[in-house]
Design a protein around this nucleic acid. Sequence first.
DNA 1: TTGTAGGCGTTATCAA
DNA 2: TTGATAACGCCTACAA
Lengths: 337, 337
Amino acid sequence: MPPRIHDVAKALNLSITTVSRALDGYDDVAPETRQRVIAAAQSMGYTPNRAARQLRRQRTDTLGYILPATEGGFADPFASAFIAGLGDEAAAHNYDLLVSTAAPNSHQEQALYRRWVQGGKVDGIILNHIRLDDRRLDFLTESGVRYVTLDRSPTQTHFIGVEVDVQSGYDDLISHLTTQGHSRIAYIGGPAMLTMEHDRQNAYQNALRAHGITPQPDLITRANLTTEGGYQAAMRLLDLHLPPTAIVCINDLTAFGAMHAVHERGLKVGRDVAVAGFDGIADSAHTQPPLTTLHQPVHEIARQLVQLLLKHLNRQTPDPSHITIRPNLLIRASTGG
Amino acid sequence: MPPRIHDVAKALNLSITTVSRALDGYDDVAPETRQRVIAAAQSMGYTPNRAARQLRRQRTDTLGYILPATEGGFADPFASAFIAGLGDEAAAHNYDLLVSTAAPNSHQEQALYRRWVQGGKVDGIILNHIRLDDRRLDFLTESGVRYVTLDRSPTQTHFIGVEVDVQSGYDDLISHLTTQGHSRIAYIGGPAMLTMEHDRQNAYQNALRAHGITPQPDLITRANLTTEGGYQAAMRLLDLHLPPTAIVCINDLTAFGAMHAVHERGLKVGRDVAVAGFDGIADSAHTQPPLTTLHQPVHEIARQLVQLLLKHLNRQTPDPSHITIRPNLLIRASTGG
DNA sequence: TTGTAGGCGTTATCAA
DNA sequence: TTGATAACGCCTACAA
């Protein structure tokens, strides 16, 4: 049983009021008294009880993040970097991070948000994997809970969050590929309901057109953001009557799988078929061959999201209400050379 | 402002006592009354305030996990699968999961544990990356906070958690390698302070001796569990006067880096130098060549840990106080064939 | 079967 | 500058 404020007060022959104010830095406490209180609290190992403080202050100093579920919990390097970023920045501001998992659009997901919001477990929420028609956003808005998102929903009028300038990234990438002589450039995306998929596929098509190439439906396919999914989708593409000479993937994991498929068909990645990813996770520098990818600073993005959210919790709307990050094209051997 | 129990009671002309008991499933409530209460709570969207409940019940229904910090938050696929497993199982039992990051042995780490434990933020804690001399365990034991660990510390008298039978795994692996004709088998480990490193390096040496091979100090090196670290460590090994013909790595990421190094030296992984990992993350099936590795079911391990912890919170000690998991050798092309 | 009342540990208002 | 006191929302002995 940890010590209570009461114990500290008794030990010093002071009232709990004084102890509380001394520790919280109010200025109507005698300097000497404050010293004694702080010293005593330190030596007794006193830490305010969070539940009591929450109840009184009507806030939790806790942020929530719901990890988009992945059947069987597959290992996504993006996710851990993202969580680490959220955790680091939250901790830097003395906030805690509550994490849960739930399958998109599931009952559990809905129940989870209810519990968190109506039970007052969190002050604000960070969301990613935003969906084209995302009920979560409506629910949160209705409930008056503040949130920030990575990626912007088309239905979102007041966007607060971080956005990746996918178009500029894909312009760079497609430009690079056409320079290498590619014109049959395929695309492996993610689940259709994600804005991420919508945005990236659009950007891919726009970039193609900007380079005088008409997007071909049979060169556009989808997977599930995993290595295994990328492998299978790439297999399908390579089985086409007229297979692509380059494959652009929605993320690095998908690209890893695509490279494997290319190799298994007896072709050489970079020479016979170019493969590119998106994310720039650390592993991408060490694949065989190293992967050309659009790097986005995941850890930094997560920290920016937390900063935006904290500002949002304090004022009404953070000053720049959203931040745009330009991905950085890393050219490696998987696209020729 | 979400509805309170008071609001529900008023709407039904009942006392808050009755509402509370009806919702909590006490049997001294008239069936009809219970129906009405449940219906009203549902329609009003009532969810008990967590802070108040915690304060009253003196428990939080929250578990804590501190992600071992990684400078810059590099992306570790193990971590996200682990967190997903913790989150899934916790949610299945109506528990929340609090996550934070802190550098091992840092001041922040210590402060974080204090806040969580003494502030009563969590009922129990899950730990991994246990260190040889791990103060966290002493602190938690002293504080009377229940915890479970992945990996067992040598100083731990009452071990509650999950342990991986590394020895049997390395016996299988070394046996496989010697059968392939290897005898100069190197090892790339992790930070020296981790029990994980200690256990795996020991198991590697034991397995070598069991096959009549004397471990050689110059073939044993360490990295930092990342792909980049594995790359550099492997480079050092390949620069030796008498380089190894096989490299055993403490985890898959390290092995990815090692494979890259082998290739960069103009050698072929699997033919000239065998490389093996540990973890069996999804990507390992799709590297070039696919990686031989000791697979451990991360998601399942995480769930078992939560189950053990919850049992520990209810009774004094869970019945089997710990669970041993045998890793499964997946033989792929990175070790020949 | 239902209601009354006290208290979990803090913070904030007010008075001394 | 300090102290008494009333909430915050909920659960649970105890009384009715």
